[in-house]
Design a binder for these strands. Structure first.
Lengths: 190, 190
DNA sequence: TACAAGATAGACAGATCGGTTTCCTTTGTC
DNA sequence: GACAAAGGAAACCGATCTGTCTATCTTGTA
């Protein structure tokens, strides 16, 4: 039994190519070549390129959120601090050498219509991240966890975009400072 | 003399198609067809599709910033309020029915590498918007105009992305509230 | 009226696109 | 050892891609 199934090989390669080069700009031929897999095999596993894109986005969602959560857990075990650790985790990511923005923001740029299946998966991913942050906010006993999670989420998106488009690698740190203010404001003084 | 030169016709159509459908997904044939122009004419005015993309992004930068500045001027004439009016202007834009995110964020998604000419134009656009905000901050006599402009810019990017990817049309309003806090904090009490 | 510039439609080129199919080989299982 | 399933290589399909070229027509100007 191989370490990776053919399907996993394909998705692994697609993850990299779609992320680095974009979805429309990445052809099936390039994917099968780099995955060392025949075209027939790819189309045995996926009905179409669109299906592969969807599978790739779902995999990315799984990997990204797991990595984010593990990082945050590693950085702190105090709920309130974890809310801020999220920005340290994002900052680490932004400073990786192959960072080219958020795959879901990028995918939404290429699949703009809100009812496009790929766009829907992107929105779903963002919702799950937001829910994770809201859970952290609840654990940190914030006054308005839902509102705070939306604010923090907006700061994260802003940091990612600023880091990618303008190359400002401190964006997450700057966002963190704003988040710290918001968290303070959201904490009932006793 | 025509109302629009051939070149302008081409760019006008390209603006719309690239924005709505993406850059790689929009073919030259579609552009010339909708512009009512021959392929030869297009290639007389632009050396390549990449050149057309660049020209289109530059035009968009011009149109977008002019519109933003005019809107802000219309909404308020008090410098400090103008800083917040920026978010109202962005909110108006987000709620237009054909809104599909920021063309420059979208272009950066398709042209990810920082040294890609199109990406560079995107970064340039973002820099010019940031400088405009910094000017507003200076006029509003903020304590740290540069820092504040970066923060406000980050909030704007966040709002645009949240609005597009997740369809949250209140994002700019939410961002505005955070900005109001930051502006307050940046104002020396006298 | 003559001429040059610029526009036209559209054929054409060569590459690549997503996707299907054929033929053959490998591989795991009973 | 037989058999079915899966994979591989590559031909093939029609469509589309960017870009070139030819041959004709319009238009402003001298």
């Amino acid at each position: 039994m191989p370490a990776l199934s053919k399907r996993e090989q394909i998705v692994t390669v697609a993850l990299e190519l779609f992320y680095q080069n974009g979805f429309h700009a990445t052809g099936i031929d390039r994917i099968i070549k780099e995955a060392g897999v025949s075209k027939k095999t790819l189309y045995n596993h996926f009905k179409s390129k669109d299906e592969l894109v969807l599978a790739t986005l779902r995999k990315r969602d799984e990997l990204f959120r797991n990595k984010l959560m593990r990082k945050v857990e590693r950085l702190s075990d105090v709920p309130k601090e974890r809310l801020l650790s999220v920005f340290d985790a994002i900052s680490e990511w932004i400073n990786e050498k192959n960072f080219v923005g958020c795959m879901f923001i990028n995918a939404s740029a290429e699949y703009s219509e809100a009812d496009n299946p790929s766009h829907i998966v992107c929105a779903e991913h963002k919702r799950l991240v937001r829910e994770y942050i809201r859970d952290l906010a609840v654990q940190a006993e914030m006054d308005k966890p839902e509102e705070l999670s939306q604010q923090i989420n907006l700061l994260i998106e802003g940091a990612i975009v600023v880091a990618h488009v303008s190359g400002n690698k401190n964006a997450a740190t700057q966002a963190k400072e704003i988040a710290a203010m918001l968290i303070n404001k959201n904490t009932t003084k006793k």
